[in-house]
Each structure stands twice: as structure tokens, then as C-alpha cells.
């Protein structure tokens, strides 16, 4: 079996990218660009969704909450998948960067999930007639929020970093089964929440003029996540490795520059 450090291609990239100094340089240079793209995408998506998209034939203007609610719900799930993958890498490769990614992702994912729950609830009152119902979609989404909060509580409760990383990784992986449940809940069981509009096999059942701002908003949310993730991971790595030579060196360079 080839040794990981000497074998080429993917593994060399994988281990190289995982090294904190390399990652730090990458994050330092890409954050301003990512932040710029995020702002532009949010501007296009919000103006397109709130001003230019036509009103819905049934819901009127109220449907516009879709531009905040749906991308937030998607991101809540995407961030969780990233967190669980980072958890698996933590368990298998013991990579510090992976743990930093998982830790940095949890509050962001929790915020997205919370936003999806709140906006959905505010829409539910006038449209459905209730703020909340214990159907499979809403309940599994609430469980997702609790998984994020549980992950944050668990990793912060254990003071030893390695044990905290492993315990958190296992929790993140266990919670991963909830993700397909959230997605398919509206198909497997009968629920009050409507079925999938965009991510189904046949054409999306939404008018193109409404769909485009929605996709732009989804992209904006993703760029927002990557921007904040890189900033948070960088912080995390710098603080946990503040005694290492490369961080000291960086501090000296920053002072000179």
C-alpha cells in the first residue's frame, strides 16, 4: 500500500490542503473575493425576487418568503452534510482542519435552520392557518436544529480537544440519517407541508421568472456560507495553533506589513 505522504495526485492535494498554514494562506486570499460575490448575488437575488418576480396566482405577494425560506432550508441540510463529512474525515484521518470545519459550520447551519423554521412559521399562519403542526417535515426540520445545538453543546462541554472532536464527529454522523428523512418526509408520509417544487425529477413546477431569483438566492446563501466558513475556520486554526511557528511568523509579517 502506498504511503499517503508520497503517493501523488488526489492524496497529495488532500493532505496538502489539510495543512493549517496552507489553508490559512488560501482563506486569507479568497475571503474578500467570496464576500464580494456574496453581496452581488444577494443584491441580484433579492431585487429579482422581491421586485421583478411576478406574484403567485394563489398566494399573491406572500409567496415571496420563498426567497428566504427555501434557500435557508436547503442550506440547513447542505451545511449538515458538510459537517458530517468533516466528522468522518476527523475520525478516519484525524485532520485538524476537518474538525475546525465541522465546529465552524455548526452555528452557521443552526442559524440557517432557525431561519427556515421561523420564516416557514410566519408563512404558515396566513396560508395554512397555523404557525406550527407536528407533521413529518416540520418535525424532522426541528430535529435538525436540535442536532446542531446538541453538537455545539457536546463539543463545547468536553475540554480535551481531541475527545471533543471525536465525540462531535460521531454525533454529526449519527444525525446524518435525518437528512434524507427531511427531504423525503413529504413523499413517504402525508404531511401538511407541500411536496418538492424544484428538486424533483420532472421539470420544476414553478414559473421560470420565479425560479431564476430563487436559484440566485440559493447561490448567494452558498457563497455566504463559504465566506463565513473560511473566516471562522481561519480564526479557529489561528487560535488553536497560536503557539506554533507559522502563526508566530504570520504575526510578525502582519506587523511589518
Amino acid at each position: 500500500m502506498p504511503n499517503a505522504t508520497t503517493s501523488g495526485g488526489f492524496w497529495r492535494w488532500f493532505h496538502g490542503f489539510g495543512s493549517p498554514p496552507r489553508f490559512d494562506a488560501f482563506a486569507r486570499h479568497s475571503v474578500p473575493w467570496l464576500a464580494g460575490v456574496t453581496i452581488v448575488l444577494f443584491a441580484i437575488g433579492l431585487i429579482g425576487g422581491l421586485v421583478y418576480a411576478p406574484t403567485d396566482y394563489q398566494q399573491g405577494e406572500s409567496f415571496r418568503i420563498i426567497y428566504v425560506h427555501v434557500p435557508a432550508a436547503w442550506m440547513g441540510m447542505l451545511v449538515y452534510v458538510v459537517m458530517a463529512l468533516a466528522g468522518a474525515i476527523t475520525l478516519v484521518w484525524r485532520m485538524k482542519l476537518a474538525d475546525a470545519v465541522a465546529r465552524a459550520s455548526a452555528p452557521i447551519g443552526a442559524a440557517f435552520t432557525f431561519l427556515a423554521l421561523v420564516t416557514g412559521s410566519l408563512w404558515g399562519k396566513p396560508m395554512w392557518g397555523t404557525y406550527w403542526i407536528w407533521d413529518a417535515r416540520l418535525t424532522s426540520e426541528l430535529i435538525l436544529l436540535f442536532l446542531y445545538l446538541g453538537y455545539m453543546a457536546l463539543t463545547n462541554a468536553i475540554s480535551d480537544r481531541q475527545s471533543a472532536a471525536r465525540a462531535g464527529a460521531i454525533l454529526a454522523l449519527v444525525g446524518l440519517v435525518n437528512i434524507p428523512i427531511i427531504h423525503y418526509s413529504v413523499e413517504w408520509w402525508n404531511t401538511l407541508h407541500q411536496g418538492a417544487t424544484v428538486s424533483k425529477f420532472d421539470a420544476p413546477s414553478i414559473d421560470t421568472r420565479m425560479l431564476i431569483p430563487l436559484l440566485v438566492m440559493a447561490l448567494a446563501y452558498q457563497f455566504y456560507y463559504f465566506t463565513v466558513l473560511l473566516m471562522r475556520v481561519r480564526n479557529e486554526l489561528l487560535s488553536s495553533q497560536r503557539r506554533t511557528q507559522w502563526v508566530q511568523q504570520l504575526l510578525v509579517n502582519e506587523k511589518i506589513a
Binding site: 411576478p54 396566482y57 396560508m127 395554512w128 407541500q194 411536496g195 417544487t197 414553478i206 414559473d207 420565479m210
Partner: peptide
């Protein structure tokens, strides 16, 4: 004692619906 409306997954402008 309670009636809730279920929304379907279709979104379109009024003129398309017409």
C-alpha cells in the same frame, strides 16, 4: 374543530394560471 389549507407545490403568475 380546526381546518387548515394544504398548499400544493405549484407556483405561477396569475396570467399563466388563467
Amino acid at each position: 374543530s380546526e381546518v387548515l389549507a394544504k398548499h400544493d407545490e405549484n407556483y405561477m403568475p396569475p396570467e399563466v394560471s388563467e
